[in-house]
Design a protein around this nucleic acid. Sequence first.
DNA 1: CAGCTCATGTGAACGGCTTTTACATGAGGC
DNA 2: GCCTCATGTAAAAGCCGTTCACATGAGCTG
Lengths: 239, 239
Amino acid sequence: MSWRKDQGRSERGYHHGNLKEALLQAALDLISKKGPAGFTFADAARMAGVSPAAPYRHFRDRDELIASIAQRGFEQFESALTQAWDDGRPDTVTAFERVGRAYLAFAREEPAFYSAMFESGLPPDANPALMAAGERAFAIIRAAAERLAALAPPGMPRPPAMMMALHIWSMSHGVASLFGRGDAARRKLPMSPEDLLEAEVLIYLRGLGFPTDRKPGATPPPLNETPAGDKPGPWGKPK
Amino acid sequence: MSWRKDQGRSERGYHHGNLKEALLQAALDLISKKGPAGFTFADAARMAGVSPAAPYRHFRDRDELIASIAQRGFEQFESALTQAWDDGRPDTVTAFERVGRAYLAFAREEPAFYSAMFESGLPPDANPALMAAGERAFAIIRAAAERLAALAPPGMPRPPAMMMALHIWSMSHGVASLFGRGDAARRKLPMSPEDLLEAEVLIYLRGLGFPTDRKPGATPPPLNETPAGDKPGPWGKPK
DNA sequence: CAGCTCATGTGAACGGCTTTTACATGAGGC
DNA sequence: GCCTCATGTAAAAGCCGTTCACATGAGCTG
């Protein structure tokens, strides 16, 4: 029962004790509710129970707080992608798709992070640490693409891994930002964003000559085979 | 030389005469310079030479101005896509790729419109007219996908056109918003956004079984043939 | 052309936000 | 026990969005 300055909530004296963290947390809440544009420095201060000037002891200005959140977001993002990739287990294609789903899951479950990372409108060159964190996250996708490219079927020109990585990233980001977030920008979709992205990636990989029916030794070109169950193609039944 | 109220610049009396248009134009300028978040109602008024309260005679609030710009953007967007599609001439695949390039060109040349359309954070359901304009623009992509789907090689399951359209849209938007705008969010790319998207779409179409070497009667499956010149694949020379 | 009306613009004011500055507090090192 | 300095506060300046009462004059009506 060490209730010294547990949640920074009530009963605090002149000094907060954990203000920086409390501000980041409050900002996350607010951004997820009202978007990075609607987020207010003063609101975060209020939520943490301090005066509007207090945050300036921890962040140069409002943008720096958002940049901090974006950076932290990239770190969690990197960690989530790393875990999903799981070094390509059990097989490269399966792991690759798991990365795609992890991408969408992150955008959906951490909309505040995601918008801070990609929609805050911060000048990317102004913040080296932030850009580096972004690069590290992208490096996971890039590494996965590298492994996938190395598996390119013999007799085909091997696709540049960097290009593949950029393609996958653009698909994921496109789906996430157009259809991904729970309530924002929803449009009527014939399928879930996850399924949409999975089909997109599978078709793309097939276009590169990869077998896409999840069985390592399957035959590459006969495109419409149905392995075991009833999986007509990367999309559902043509209906 | 009818210099009555030509540009609304100097020499205007109490009434501006063309304020609504001037505000929209000023807002476009400001948004392209500072993003939709940095845009200021008061600034637009200043730029048009009127008091800060004047804009309220033409727009309920700041959001309505941005929504107006987004709507106008969707209309121009639709027109640009329609022109690029050119009803599928000279052949469907070529026209389809032209649509992709037109998408990027719009994002690059009209960043203010593009961000108002996709990054303004406006509630999409709150503005039926805006959403309808967006639907009309998407309908072009959808119609193109429909035509493409109808050409699906015989013996293959025919891909749902809606899904194809959503895939193409997500690729285009992903590339545009990650790499597309001139100075914002630039990252080092091994190729131009246009080439990146073209390769992505070609690989995707090949994954659906389409011939992608631009010759209507070409053979579908032999994926690595080089028709006449030296076009190794959708990407450049493997190097 | 006189007069009226109403769309359009103005000025002032309110509250909120960001940021700065001078000052207050008290936690931790000596 | 005292001092110092990181951390928080209060007050103020300047900006923005928004509203309201009021001013102006363009265009219709006769």
